[in-house]
Design a protein around this nucleic acid. Structure first.
Lengths: 166, 166
DNA sequence: TTGGAAAGTCAACAAAGCTGACTTAAACTC
DNA sequence: GAGTTTAAGTCAGCTTTGTTGACTTTCCAA
């Protein structure tokens, strides 16, 4: 039995179950590569992937609030708080009381925080750059199109917003 | 200052740090979507994402050994063993002593295991299919090209081997 | 035939998620 | 101005999934 409907022609060959399965496995293996380099750097320090994510998004949107970060990262307050607390204690992140709304905390990377972010993102970008270069611009465009279509609507909103903000 | 080397023309615009950063964030947000549906199904049962991965790859390569699975999943023996033990106890996976080498265990999904695999992969494929359909075949080709280039060499080997085996 | 290597298992621990209940302070609303 | 809502942060306790190290069984080769 064919995976797609019986009348689907050659034009939809890329939608067969086998093709989809390949895509699933590609995502799995590629994500491992994607995180491998920063993970390696982090394992010597007392930080993990969660710290990387926090540092990444604070760097990309300096002054962001805790609530906004929670929304982007999709974790619970306690989970983020544990990570944020260590980063603040270690002087990588600065938390300033909001100017307009004093309940909020605006988060910034310190110089030390920026140095770590740079180290991690350099490693991650190097792999990304190599992949992009070997695949070529058209493949990269397709790559982004499919990834964007794969996101939940909420995440797509965040993704686009971050893109605009720069 | 330009991100790439000064003499890189328009043809390499897709290699700027900003473009790479977008790709990094796209991977992050998309991976969340990618795992969201199976995760939702699993949270009601007493299983997690690790069980899904084991079931997925046993299904794709019936009779595989524990060692091979360790290599594919990239986790430690104990991490896999815990997962495998519950799956075997619950009758989703069968572990048969190897015929040629009795140190090995060959792993198979039982009918019940196959049913769970089907349920999870149906959900994951549905999202994948929607993303593929909206992006179109050329984008899908580019998507796979970039993902494959992003893998570690070891993982790319596994990826291709699994593809051949079917 | 024995001694090392390989496959698998077990115990104990660490990182990073989660829930739920609670406090504090500021902002909003009526 | 009193009462409610919101943002942030804390505490306690749990789950999943990763880790290392020690152990048994089996195989193979010197």
């Amino acid at each position: 039995m064919r995976a797609t409907s019986p009348h689907s022609g050659e034009a939809l060959l890329f939608l067969t179950d086998e093709q989809l399965r390949q895509g699933i496995e590609a995502m799995f293996f590629a994500y491992r590569g994607f995180t491998a380099d920063p993970d390696r750097i982090l394992q010597d320090m007392s930080y993990g992937r969660a710290h990387h994510r926090a540092v990444h998004f604070i760097n990309g949107a300096p002054g962001t609030t805790v609530n906004n970060l929670l929304d982007i990262l999709g974790v619970t307050k306690q989970s983020l708080n544990r990570v944020l607390r260590t980063l603040i204690e270690d002087g990588l992140v600065e938390s300033r009381v909001g100017t307009t709304d004093k309940r909020e905390r605006n988060l910034y990377l310190t110089d030390e925080g920026k140095a770590l972010e740079r180290q991690l993102s350099d490693a991650q970008r190097a792999r990304m750059r190599a992949a992009y270069r070997s695949a070529g611009p058209e493949a990269v465009a397709g790559f982004k199109t499919v990834l964007e279509a794969m996101m939940d609507a909420d995440m797509r909103r965040h993704y686009r917003k971050l893109r605009e903000g720069r």
